[in-house]
Simulated assay, not measured.
Amino acid sequence: MHIELKGRKAIVTGSTAGIGRAIAEEMARAGAAVVVNGRTQKRVDTALREIRALLPDAELTGVAADVATAEGCAVLFGQTPDADILVNNAGTAHPNDFFGQDDGEWLDLFQLNVMSGVRTARHYLPKMMARGWGRVVFVSSESGLNIPKEMIDYGVTKTAILAVSRGLAELVAGTGVTVNAVLPGPTRSEILSNWMESTAQERGITREQAEQQFLRTARPTTLINRFATTEEVANMVVYACSEQASATTGAALRVDGGVVRSIA
Rank of each mutant, 00 (worst) to 15 (best):
S165M: 11
S140Q: 02
T222Q: 09
G31K: 00
S189A: 06
A240G: 02
E208H: 05
V67N: 10
P56D: 06
P56V: 08
A17T: 12
M27N: 03
I147C: 14
E26A: 12
R203T: 00
A24H: 01
K9T: 15
L183G: 01
L112A: 09
V63R: 02
T159L: 10
G72S: 03
G38T: 07
A65W: 11
L54N: 10
V67Q: 12
L223R: 15
R219G: 01
R49P: 00
E25I: 15
C73Q: 02
R29G: 00
D57C: 07
A93C: 11
S246R: 15
T229K: 08
G134F: 13
L215I: 14
V136Y: 03
A32P: 05
D66V: 01
V237W: 06
A68D: 12
S246T: 10
A228D: 13
V34E: 07
V139G: 04
L76N: 04
R188N: 12
N96A: 14
P56K: 11
A65P: 13
V35S: 05
G14F: 03
N88D: 08
S165T: 06
V255F: 11
G174D: 04
E232G: 05
A210S: 15
A163E: 06
S262A: 13
Q212I: 01
T248H: 13
I3H: 05
I191F: 03
A200Q: 05
F110Y: 15
S165C: 10
A33E: 14
N194S: 13
G38S: 04
D102N: 15
T16S: 08
A90S: 09
L145G: 00
A83K: 06
T221Q: 13
A264K: 08
V118N: 05
S15D: 12
G7H: 09
L55R: 12
G31M: 12
G176S: 02
A163Y: 11
T175G: 03
L171F: 12
N235L: 10
T249G: 04
F227C: 10
T178E: 02
D102I: 00
G257N: 05
L48Y: 08
A74Q: 12
E231R: 15
L162Q: 13
T13E: 02
V136F: 05
E211W: 01
S143L: 10
L86P: 12
P81A: 11
G104A: 14
W106C: 02
D82H: 10
I263A: 14
D103Y: 09
E231S: 14
A251G: 10
A121K: 01
I147A: 08
V12G: 02
A200I: 04
Q201Y: 04
Q244R: 13
L107I: 08
A24I: 07
A210I: 10
A252F: 13
L215G: 13
P81W: 10
E71L: 00
H2Q: 09
P148S: 08
R216Q: 14
Q213C: 00
A28I: 11
K149G: 15
P95E: 11
A173V: 01
T120F: 08
